[in-house]
Amino acid sequence: MLKAEGLKKSYGTLQVLKGIDLQVNKGEIVAIVGASGAGKSTLLHLLGTLDKPDSGQLLMNNENVFVKNAADLARFRNNAIGFVFQFHNLLPEFSALENVMMPGFIGGKAEPDLKKRANELLKILGLSQRAEHKPSEMSGGEQQRTAVARALINAPSIILADEPSGNLDSKTALELHQLFFKLRKELDQTFIIVTHNAELAGMADRKIELADGLVKL
């Protein structure tokens, strides 16, 4: 489903990634681990097409994504990839429902269909009673679950999560981790998760450890 071959990335004279090869299959939950500075977030940005590698290629559903022009790549990213970050990045002036719908609006989808799907996702995530609440009226865990629903709204091929529980207490973090497995079971969703959380990494189907810009064998 996703295959990275020889990804390299430098910033100035600092070589962060030195040739990353990895493959993720549909329905897998894969954890990317490693010490700070190992290149985890840089790799996630490349896998999410938020940045381009200096060399190497990324295939998603057998499509070489980095040959696309900027506009086509942005459309591809919006439709095929969902993102969950450590800080939920919800828009404070909008309700949970409106935040969840936002990537669909960007993708030009019809509002009635979007609203129906957003409400379905909020129900799956136990947030039906929070649909009209703004982020400031929700707990940290509720905000992060709203961010997960937003990541799912366009039915992406894969969800990329960067320290998704890093800003949550241990109980709420465990609930979020369990939610990922529920979504895999119910929606056949694929996840790549960068985490320092040993418990979450241990729950994943596979762990990929980065060290000094390479996959540690």
Results as ranks from 00 to 15, higher is better:
residue 118 A to N: 11
residue 67 V to Y: 10
residue 125 L to W: 04
residue 102 M to E: 14
residue 146 T to G: 08
residue 140 G to R: 02
residue 197 N to A: 15
residue 35 A to H: 12
residue 202 G to F: 00
residue 77 R to K: 10
residue 1 M to K: 11
residue 90 L to G: 03
residue 206 R to T: 11
residue 193 I to A: 02
residue 37 G to I: 08
residue 59 L to P: 03
residue 192 I to W: 00
residue 79 N to L: 14
residue 165 S to D: 13
residue 25 N to E: 15
residue 85 F to Q: 05
residue 212 D to T: 05
residue 110 A to Y: 02
residue 138 M to G: 04
residue 143 Q to C: 14
residue 143 Q to Y: 08
residue 56 G to Q: 05
residue 158 I to N: 09
residue 97 L to W: 11
residue 177 H to W: 01
residue 55 S to F: 03
residue 185 K to D: 15
residue 116 K to S: 12
residue 178 Q to H: 14
residue 154 N to Y: 09
residue 144 Q to L: 10
residue 63 E to D: 13
residue 34 G to Y: 03
residue 2 L to T: 06
residue 112 P to W: 03
residue 147 A to E: 09
residue 33 V to P: 05
residue 173 A to N: 05
residue 112 P to C: 01
residue 187 L to I: 03
residue 165 S to R: 05
residue 161 A to M: 11
residue 133 H to Y: 11
residue 142 E to I: 09
residue 202 G to A: 15
residue 98 E to D: 13
residue 112 P to N: 08
residue 69 N to L: 04
residue 86 Q to N: 07
residue 44 L to T: 06
residue 155 A to I: 03
residue 36 S to Y: 07
residue 195 T to W: 12
residue 187 L to S: 01
residue 203 M to K: 14
residue 163 E to R: 07
residue 135 P to A: 06
residue 95 S to N: 10
residue 135 P to R: 06
residue 18 K to S: 10
residue 69 N to P: 00
residue 16 V to P: 02
residue 163 E to I: 05
residue 93 E to Q: 14
residue 58 L to F: 01
residue 142 E to Q: 15
residue 4 A to G: 08
residue 39 G to S: 05
residue 76 F to S: 11
residue 144 Q to I: 08
residue 205 D to V: 10
residue 178 Q to E: 15
residue 47 L to I: 06
residue 211 A to M: 12
residue 166 G to K: 12
residue 59 L to A: 02
residue 15 Q to S: 14
residue 142 E to D: 08
residue 47 L to W: 01
residue 205 D to S: 07
residue 182 K to P: 03
residue 199 E to Q: 14
residue 11 Y to L: 04
residue 15 Q to I: 11
residue 45 H to P: 00
residue 100 V to I: 03
residue 212 D to G: 09
residue 109 K to W: 06
residue 93 E to L: 12
residue 158 I to K: 08
residue 183 L to K: 00
residue 126 G to T: 10
residue 137 E to G: 09
residue 68 K to V: 02
residue 189 Q to P: 01
residue 13 T to F: 10
residue 205 D to P: 08
residue 94 F to P: 01
residue 142 E to L: 08
residue 117 R to L: 00
residue 120 E to H: 13
residue 171 K to D: 13
residue 65 V to F: 07
residue 121 L to Y: 09
